[in-house]
């Protein structure tokens, strides 16, 4: 399975109703395009910059399915014009996307309803010793054991195909609500162990200061799509 996560910046003046139309077009994709398992998006409820305003998730059966998607008439005619800045119908000013296959994932609660689907896309600083990156990866993947608010989750190294990316890792989770996100933030394992790697004042920081971060509301699991 090949997963793609996109962060979108809408064009000036685009309304939430218009973006809802874009998301409806995305949700239709699996009905039209073979190999697209799921596609949906939503408003990033913790966006800090316009570039992170909306998110779109897509799951492809494999890389070949992505190529089918790219050239399929539904993509060419219904989706691409909404995302292509050069097209007058576009609702999107710019977007950033990463592709990955999870290094590890767990779905202890695949039947969650009305949840928050959260994504953090980061870049490990160039030149970081591999053993430090491995230790950071280990700490990230230990979080669900220490923080019960994390339900379904996936951790991945970002792929450099089908397109090169400046990002190196994706840390994704599904949590019930904003209170659960607060529990995630408040865990000593988070602020005292994992966040050091992001801390601009910690001498061993390895995660670059800029990252993509967000969550949106979804009626059912995204990480559990199969």
């Amino acid at each position: 399975m090949l997963r793609r996560v996109m962060f979108l910046k809408p064009r000036d003046g685009v309304t939430e109703q218009q973006m809802d139309g874009l998301f409806r077009a995305c949700q239709e994709a699996p009905r039209h395009i073979p190999g697209v398992v799921g596609m949906q998006g939503g408003k990033n409820l913790i966006a800090r910059v316009p570039e992170d305003a909306y998110m779109v998730d897509t799951l492809y059966r494999d890389l070949a399915a992505y190529e089918t998607y790219r050239h399929h008439p539904y993509h060419e005619e219904a989706l691409k014009p909404l995302f292509n800045r050069a097209d007058p119908r576009s609702l999107v000013e710019s977007y950033d996307a990463v592709f990955y296959e999870p290094l590890r994932e767990e779905f202890p609660q695949p039947d969650m309803k009305n949840l928050l689907r959260r994504s953090l896309i980061v870049r490990i600083e160039p030149g970081t010793p591999p053993e430090q990156t491995l230790q950071w990866e280990k700490h990230i993947m230990e979080m669900p054991r220490h923080i019960p608010a994390i339900r379904n989750w996936a951790f991945a190294r970002v792929m450099q195909t089908p397109r090169p990316s400046v990002w190196t890792h994706a840390w994704e989770m599904e949590i019930q609500d904003a209170d659960a996100f607060r529990q995630y933030l408040d865990s000593p394992f988070h602020w005292g162990v994992v966040d050091r790697w992001f801390d601009p004042e910690w001498p061993m920081r390895i995660v670059a200061p800029r990252f993509l971060h967000g969550y949106y509301k979804t009626p059912a699991t995204v990480l559990g799509w199969r």
Binding site: L185, D195, F198, D199, P200, E201
Partner: peptide
């Protein structure tokens, strides 16, 4: 906890730090 994350984000965005 709130103050912890606030100061962290402030430090991250302050080139003087």
């Amino acid at each position: 906890e709130q103050a912890f994350w606030t100061q962290k984000h402030t430090a991250r965005n302050d080139p003087a730090v």
